[in-house]
Nucleic acid binder design. Sequence first.
RNA 1: GGCCCCAUCGUCUAGUGGUCUAGGACGGUUGGUUUUCAUCCAACAAAUCUUGGGUUCGAAUCCCAAUGGGGUCACCA
Length: 435
Amino acid sequence: MIRTRFAPSPTGSMHIGNLRTAFYAYALAKHNNGEFILRIEDTDKKREIEGGANDIKDLLTIFDIKWDEYYIQSERLDLYKKAAEKLVEDGHAFYCQCEAKNAKEDGFSKDLRDPCRDKNLTSGAVKLKVPENEWITFKDFVLQKKVSWNTSTIGDATLFKTDGFPTYHLAVVVDDNDLKISHVLRGHDWMPSTPIHILVYKYLGFDVPEIGHLTDIMDPDGGKLSKRKGSTSVRGLLTEGYLPEALLNFVILLGWAPKDNREMFTLEEFVKYFDPNGFQKGNPVFNREKLDWFNGEYIRKLSDTELYEKFQFSNSNFQTMEENKKLQITKLVKDRIKKISDLDALAKFFWEEPKEIDMNLFGKNYKEHLTKAQEAIEKSIPLDTVSKNNDFKVGDFFMDLRIAITGTKFTPPINESIEILGKEKSIKRIRKILE
RNA sequence: GGCCCCAUCGUCUAGUGGUCUAGGACGGUUGGUUUUCAUCCAACAAAUCUUGGGUUCGAAUCCCAAUGGGGUCACCA
C-alpha cells in the first residue's frame, strides 16, 4: 500500500511550490489506490501563524485535494520525546546546553561536532551524535540514482529543543514511520538533511521509506522563486484571478511531464496519467506567460454562468450591474481575458464613464461619424446601415464610435456594448465628445 | 568555502545508443477570419543537444573532467 503525505508547516501563506508537492504526493498515492495523509508540522511555535492550519486545509479543498487522514504534530509530542530519550539512552544522541546558535554571518558554520557530545549531560536540547567516517547511501526515487554522504561532513543536528518540541529532523522520521508512509516526497532543499534522517531511522530501528527530492521552482531572474518577485503565494495567485484548475495544470507541468507531452490535465486525469518516471531533474522556471495561457484556456472552458459567478464574486462594480446585463457582458469578455481580474480593465466603461478621452485617438472625420451615429442610435437604426448609407469607411466609423463610448481603442464588440450600455448613456457620451 | 544536486529552442519539455538534418507547447514573427482587441486557423523563425575529452562501427542518449546553475551548512521548517 502506497501512503504519501503532505506535511506543511503553518508558518505563512502556502507557496506555489508547496502546493505542487501536495499534488505530486496526492497523485503518487491515488494513482496506486493508496492513501494521502495531511500532517501539520507545527513544531516551531515562534513562527506559527494564527489560522495557518485551517488555511492549508482550505486551500487544498479549493484544489479538490482530499486527505484520508489528518495529524497535527503538536498533539503527538510524547512520541517524539520518547524517541529522543531512546536515542540518548542508546548512545546515539546527547544532551546539549550550549547557547543556541543562529545562522552565522558568513552564512555557514564550520563546527560540525558539538562540544557537549561527550559531557554526558542529563538535560538540555537533544542532538544527534553523528558517527565519523561512515557512508550513508540512499536511492532517490525522483532522481533515480544513488546519493551518498560521508558522515564526517555532517553536523550534529538538533533533534529535540528545550521548549519541549522536536525539530523537523526528529518529527518527520518518527511520524513517517508511525504513520507508515511508504514514499516521502519533498523539495530539493531538503536533500542535505536526508543523511541525518537516515541515521535517525537506523538508530531508532525503523525501515527507511522511499525518498524522492523534487526540483525547486526558480524565479525568472534566477534563484529560488521569491516572494518579492510578484505573488508566489497560492492565495495571492487565486485573488489575482487565476483559476484553481489552471494553476494546478500549470504547476504540475513544472517538474513533471508525461511521455506523450500532453498539456491539458484535470486533477483526475493527472492522477490517472501519473508516472514517477516523468519527474524532472533540472529546476524549472516559473513562467507567467504560460500560466496566463492556461488560465485563458480554462476560462474559455467555463460555461457563461460559471464565469459570470466568478465575476460576481470578485468584482464589486460588476455586482451593481443590472442582472440581465451581467450575462451579456460575461459573453462579450470571455474570449478576451486571461485572468478573472482582467474584467475591470476591459469592461470598466460599462460602469464608469470614460474621463479625459485623448482627442488624438479620433480619426479626422470623427464629428461626422459621431453625429450620424448619434442620430441612428436615437432612431434605433442599425449602425451598419449608417456606415453603408453614408459611405463611411467601416473601420474608421466604428473606431470613432468605440472611442467615444469606451475611451479606448481595444474593447469588446461595440454594437453589443452599446446595447448593454443603453441608448441614453451612449448618446450622452457621444454628445460629450461633440460639444 | 565544505557537502550535495542539476544541465535539449527565450521558457516548460519529448527524447533512455542508430528511425534526430532533434519533436510538441508557451512566448515571438508573419498571414487569414474579424468594425478594434481577443478568440479561432495557418505558416515561419528559434537548440552546433554547455564545453572538452573518452567508450562505441555509431552518442543528445554511456563514462570522466571543466564550466555554468541551484540547494544546504539554526534549539526554522
